[in-house]
Design a protein around this nucleic acid. Structure first.
Lengths: 258, 258
DNA sequence: ACAGGATATATGTCAAATGAATATAAGGTC
DNA sequence: GACCTTATATTCATTTGACATATATCCTGT
């Protein structure tokens, strides 16, 4: 029996097949707070609640490709361009009852994008908002996460999206020191102070300034551009950029730059 | 329109659905080397190559539940019992061409089990072996991983299982210091020396003994039992056990004890 | 019974990393 | 040009971790 025969004899219908989607946690830092893009549901179930942008995985589409497609569609990012973001597979959620309509297994991704990219997405699309995420400092998985609306009250979240958001924030905190991912939240040239603000927003705790400086510069991931910020009423800070060599991932299964 | 109407009107067939499986990297430390359970394929494709144990996810079965079921079936572990292992979701692999027969998305898990449990599985099942994994020290994702057969030569691996194994080893290395997972590889009571042997096998590099001792004890995850090992021709070492409180996960999405 | 061997456990010393405080530099504003 | 504000550099105390050494404990052999 040849391999071709086996392929013909194989019956895919013998096993029941769930639907598979990708859900995206699109994060940025705005106003000193870590925020995520949420979309208000127009249909049942969970009509009116806020959900992560997502979509079905195409029959001949890889998971990463599906995530990039949804990113382009929902966040209005042209797929070809390089806005300087970060995309990484997060975790797969597949409880049988997580969607009341049918069995849906979702592969969650998280993306880090500069603030202006997501701000533009909110303006362009409808029913979108950039909600600050409130989660106690630390790494406890059983802490409660709240996504805050414009009035500061927690938004109702659809499906199991609270646990997905929580997983994303905790993963991001864990990777802060080992991954160049957080640079994706900043423009190509940035000050060390801006970088520290990003770290503090993600961790939810203040950091020691000289120590932060030393730690980051010792990693040798950054290089000074020689230029300085302008328009300040005080001494302008040096602008740094990420070394080209470090744009590739350093960490395990480290995700990809956009 | 009520929510019930929506449920009826929804057409699950509107979206093409891939098959979803779980694949398990079952690891232990034997003879100072990190090993994984591999199963020789009896059918095409990749007949004769070595593959990870796996199985389809049932229509009403959660992902973790599917992983536990496969663990019980393939590794011969009774589902109810508590052999003291560790199970954790690893990563989801879904390249369209990863299986030539059909579109299969697999959610990979990794499990840590005491040596005797997997040794028993090898004896019980057929076409199974416990293969030492050889991977360069460090965290480079582009390094080559080899699974060694009894004669010391690398085994041919089926599908994309080399990258899955590599991901598992790197993830395990990254979690060593932050997670109580490695304790799952040891019996309930163990010496610090045995624990250090496990760490060295996983990292592929020797560790400083006093430093390792203090580091582990300072975490306060362990407590001395007051008993000591016996049958040694030297001073017997204290036997430690994991504090009950630490059996729950400490880390993010930390997996579960078995 | 006692010396010797081997390894666990404890102590001490040193280098490196970290945190906090201070000093200096560089721009803008009045 | 005095003055304010924040970046950057320097310094020191504290903590952390690595490594070397010393002591304890058990078995073995004579």
């Amino acid at each position: 029996m040849t391999e071709a025969d086996f392929l013909k004899a194989y019956d895919p219908a013998a096993f029941p097949r769930p639907s598979v989607t990708v859900d995206l946690v699109l994060m940025t830092v705005r106003g000193g707070a870590l925020c995520s893009l949420l979309q208000q549901r127009q249909d049942h179930p969970h009509k009116g609640s806020w959900a992560l942008p997502g979509g079905f995985v195409g029959p001949d589409e890889g998971l990463d490709a599906a995530a990039r497609r949804v990113l382009a569609q929902k966040a209005g990012l042209p797929e070809e361009e390089a806005p300087g973001g970060w995309l990484e597979q997060l975790y797969t959620f597949g409880a049988p009852d997580r969607d009341p309509r049918m069995r849906i297994i979702t592969v969650a991704y998280f993306a880090l994008l500069p603030e202006d990219v997501l701000a533009r997405a909110v303006k362009t699309g409808s029913g979108l908002q950039l909600a600050p995420l409130r989660l106690a400092e630390g790494e406890a998985i059983d802490a409660h996460l709240a996504a805050l609306g414009p009035d500061g009250t927690p938004l109702p979240l659809a499906f199991d999206h609270e646990i997905i958001l929580k997983t994303a924030v905790l993963r991001l905190r864990g990777k802060l020191d080992h991954s160049p991912a957080p640079f994706a939240l900043l423009p190509k040239r940035f000050t060390l102070r801006a970088l520290q603000d990003v770290h503090e927003a993600i961790l939810g705790t203040p950091l020691n300034k000289p120590a932060f400086r030393r730690r980051l510069l010792d990693k040798n991931w950054l290089e000074p551009t020689g230029e300085r910020e302008s328009g300040t009423s005080y001494r302008p800070a040096e602008l740094y950029r990420v070394r080209q060599q470090e744009k590739r991932s350093v960490a395990v299964q480290g995700g990809m730059t956009l």
